[in-house]
Design a binder for these strands. Structure first.
Lengths: 117, 117
DNA sequence: CCGAGTGTTCGATGGATATCTTACAGTCCC
DNA sequence: GGGACTGTAAGATATCCATCGAACACTCGG
């Protein structure tokens, strides 16, 4: 009875945003973060629905991680589904590609300049 | 005698960064700002070397504007040249496009979702 | 039912950065 | 030379946002 009140608990079904209604600024901001870039890359290297949130190799705690996934959902980049006690992910490749052509490729194709070298 | 010391003065020739040595993260960060997006769009709508820094319609003071141009230079997006008392700009379309294919188009093509509407 | 495992929410903190104000350095024109 | 104009530099402030710690919610297996 009456969930969603105080505290937390993750069974409220993740809120998703369709890439179609995401602004360029939102998309770019979502993608301008080292941790999130890593998440996207690892996600791209795995089959859909095979990676739970905790399975990523990033140097942040659960709370921050949860936040990052929330941002990714809000940008229409990631879809989540509850599977037993864990939340599994899927990169919305095609949908996102259609809304922001080439953007995902940029992130995945990375090769050059490492920032400060 | 001896310029570049304290204070300011803008005749030290702007420092440019080649798009080729810009990291994806730097590029994306540079482009994740409303003011800078506006600058890029206005710049794209004008011929090369026809726009001085002060000629853009953005709601910030000179100092902030100067900062934004510095960021854009650092991302290899804009080239500047001193022309008399003013500093004129040019969007490095092709160079940037080659390093980050599609990114510029994304910014210019903007049509959909306005963020908060 | 209890404990381990997973992930979310809240509140607080810290760091990055966008902004302003003030001061300064050039260029041009009278 | 003096002034108007353009832009940069430096310092202070403000705001945003990534992060953490703790508390909680939910699932699953004994």
């Amino acid at each position: 009875m009456a969930n969603q009140a105080a505290g937390g608990g993750h069974r409220a079904a993740p809120v998703h945003t369709d890439p179609e209604e995401v602004s360029v600024l939102t998309a770019l901001s979502a993608v301008s973060d080292p941790v999130r870039i890593t998440l996207i890359r690892e996600l791209a290297g795995s089959a859909d629905w095979t990676r739970s949130c905790g399975s990523f190799d990033v140097p942040v705690g659960k709370a921050a991680l949860s936040h990052h996934f929330s941002v990714l959902r809000g940008a229409g980049l990631v879809e989540q589904r509850d599977e037993g006690p864990r939340r599994v992910n899927r990169l919305r490749r095609e949908e996102f590609e259609e809304r922001f052509p080439g953007l995902l490729d940029l992130l995945l194709r990375e090769d050059g300049a490492a920032d400060a070298e």
